[in-house]
């Protein structure tokens, strides 16, 4: 790296999002490399079930955190592995508390919940919180390469929606316990049974986790969401919508990376496309005025492997302003 490099004024949690195929993964990896180069212990996380981080970086990255180079770690979250771990923990706990016969009886129902819609997201989200909690001890910064927009927005708005739901459950349980206590005034057996309530404890612990995630995600000092797009109509519209939605949920949005811009030397064949592109670039500049806009030209080959990412990474110093 050259001496003219500026230090990146990074936040602990940086997300890269955008429409599929715009180059999120390359941008996230290049950004992570920029942070690692200035000495921040950085973790790259891919939350997209269809992972491509390993391909972009050009090294094996699995579902466990691996060290890639000085100051840089990587992980590709595998929802299936995470869900299995979760289930195993529950089953072990269950064997301690209830009889094997009962475990057997409800096994089928466990399977149903385990394959229910949302289970995958929930599993990713759990790992997500676990990684967030590990900040400070092992890492200074975590860079998330997220799945295409829709999936990610659902993931990030999860704590808000589920938090409300779980709050209701806690209320209901408290009410039931209150009634139980009244009924137990003359019933010592019942009174002993409700002395401590693991159900309330579990629900509260879960709510606290959601609260923590929500606090981190909505704190502009700690989290920021950058969008990657191309100078084309659909990515622009999708980005505008996503920015609006994140704002509604109180998640701070940062800069835009306009990727794969056709350079003038592209030749006469692309002349018409370049004209259209110029219009879209104008549109981006006026529509998203006030934001950092980083323009990255289309290169003569795919951005692949560490060497090419390193070439890109100094550009990202400007993204955080």
């Amino acid at each position: 790296m050259t001496s003219t490099d500026r230090k990146v004024n990074y936040r602990p949690f940086t997300f890269f999002g955008g429409k599929g195929g715009t180059g999120k993964t390359s941008c996230a990896a290049a950004y992570a490399l920029a942070l690692a180069a200035q000495g921040a212990r950085t973790l790259m996380v891919s939350t997209d079930p269809a992972h491509s981080l390993a391909d972009a970086y050009g090294a094996e990255i699995g579902f466990e955190v691996v060290k890639l180079e000085e100051n840089l770690w990587g992980i590709e979250i595998d929802p299936e592995v995470e869900a299995k771990k979760y289930m195993k923990g529950i089953q072990e706990k269950m064997l301690h508390i209830v009889s094997a016969a009962i475990v057997d009886e409800i096994k089928r129902q466990i399977e149903i919940a385990y394959t229910s819609p949302g289970a995958e997201e929930a599993a990713i989200f759990d790992k997500f919180i676990e990684l967030m909690e590990s900040l400070g001890e092992r890492f200074d910064a975590i860079v998330f390469d997220t799945a295409p927009t829709g999936h990610t927005l659902r993931l990030l708005t999860l704590p808000e929606i589920l938090g409300t739901w779980i709050e209701h459950l806690i209320e209901k349980r408290k009410k039931a316990m209150h009634m139980m206590k009244m009924a137990a005034r003359y019933d010592s057996v019942l009174a002993e049974k409700i002395e401590e309530d693991p159900i309330l404890d579990t629900l509260t612990a879960r709510r606290d986790k959601f609260d923590l995630a929500r606090k981190i995600l909505t704190d502009p000092e700690r989290s920021v969401f950058h969008f990657v797009l191309n100078a084309e109509k659909l990515p622009i519209l999708e980005t505008a919508r996503a920015l609006e939605l994140l704002r509604n949920h109180g998640i701070a949005t940062g800069g835009l990376v306009v990727n794969k811009i056709l350079p003038p030397e592209a030749g006469p064949f692309f002349e018409k496309r370049r004209e259209a592109q110029e219009e879209y670039l104008q549109d981006i500049r006026s529509r998203f005025a006030g934001r950092k806009i980083l323009e990255i030209p289309l290169l003569d080959s795919d951005i692949q492997g560490r060497e090419q990412l390193i070439r890109l990474s100094p550009l990202f110093a400007d993204l955080d302003g």
């Binding site: 979760y86 529950i90 269950m94 209830v98 009962i102 949302g118 929930a122 159900i199 579990t202």
Partner: peptide
């Protein structure tokens, strides 16, 4: 919506 998270209550409610 959160059946996945509710599984962790099962040990206490299985009976």
């Amino acid at each position: 919506p959160i059946s996945y998270y509710m599984l962790e209550l099962l040990p206490y409610m299985a009976e």
